[in-house]
Design a protein around this nucleic acid. Structure first.
Lengths: 201, 201
DNA sequence: AATTTAACTTAACATCGTTAAGTATATCGA
DNA sequence: TCGATATACTTAACGATGTTAAGTTAAATT
């Protein structure tokens, strides 16, 4: 039954081609400005073919964002190696998070701003990639507390506080590129540094 | 020349009626979902009449956001009275900022997320309402440093850091309402508290 | 009373997301 | 190998979108 498998593989390939085209256009022109027809044109299929592979435009967005979260998770995971100084790891992870957002600003906004507007679900459900990203943050905070580098704070709340800070600075830098920010790296470092100082004993 | 004045007043009234309808619909259904036809229907005019008062849909959004920034500025200004403890004033202002965003979540997103996507200008130019809001933050930080409540930090950077934190937590609470946040008030307070602790000598 | 100006509307354009119906091509049972 | 079935894709259409150009009507001015 090699035929069936080949067909399945071909279907999967087309599915992926559609997704790649969608991402490329979403990133280049923004979710709203991209039409199903543009995506279809890009891969030389009729617009309706897309609906055989994805439920609707929001479903495409969903899949694009899932990929983005996977990329973010991989980026962060690469930093987890060194366990010696959890505070330093946390600091580097915060930087990596913001830099990821600034490196792929459109992907970041699609995932953390646009998607929630169009899709009720969080993308942070149990078992989801989003949850794994937040779990990553939880374990880092726990380690900081366990090693008495932080005072005895609530892990859950602290994780959310840190997320707020990095999310905030990332979005501000993306959304207001012309604002007279102090030097970008200094701003990012200060955000993270101030938070960490505020958590020390 | 009472006639001319009356006509001018009537024009101004209609302009305001259009803006009110736009805001009501934007807030209720989101910028993207609102059509010029819907706005026109609401005030019993033809869709094209709107274009006699506003350049286009983005111009309507612009005006709505300007109003929002004015409301935010007024809300904050009411807290500035008590100068005795600048740190406490800063804390209360931070709370007020986040609560403003949560009280009018759609207005907040329109101003700080949607608008930057559609309008190149920041709404934070010199002399703008947005700049006044940020100036408010600057003076509070300055006062904290002057009274040695904060260590010798850069006013500009510190203002931006604080804005990042409150902006971040506001947007996360709005965009991911189903996320298992720790109690909302506790989260907001902890964000602000952690920042302030991190700025103390 | 004739003409200009102001306020507003009608009609149209190109484009959008999405669905229903249709068409070819390949696979399968006989 | 032939006819039936299933798969993969397309064509055509619907109602809606932002926006513009060309009217229309009524008031103000001369």
């Amino acid at each position: 039954m090699g035929v069936k498998e080949r067909r399945a593989r071909e279907k999967e390939q087309l599915r992926h081609r559609i997704l790649s085209a969608a991402r490329e256009l979403f990133v280049a022109e923004g979710y709203e400005s991209v039409s199903m027809r543009k995506i279809a044109d890009m891969i030389d299929y009729s617009p309706t073919t897309i609906y055989l592979y994805y439920k609707d435009k929001a479903d495409l967005l969903d899949s694009v964002c899932k990929e983005t979260l996977l990329n973010l998770l991989n980026t962060l995971d690469r930093l987890r190696k060194d366990k010696s100084d959890p505070v330093e790891t946390l600091r580097m992870s915060g930087r990596a998070y913001v830099e990821f957002g600034l490196k792929y600003p459109q992907d970041y906004k699609l995932t953390f701003v646009v998607r929630p507007q169009f899709q009720k679900g969080l993308g942070l459900e149990e078992g989801s990639v989003g949850e794994k990203v937040f779990n990553y943050l939880r374990t880092m905070v726990s380690e900081c507390i366990r090693q008495k580098k932080f005072r005895q704070v609530d892990v859950e709340t602290t994780g959310q506080v840190l997320w707020s800070a990095v999310h905030g600075v990332t979005l501000l830098l993306i959304d207001f590129p012309d604002f007279p920010w102090t030097e970008k790296d200094k701003l990012i470092d200060t955000v993270i540094h101030t938070m960490i100082e505020g958590l020390k004993p």
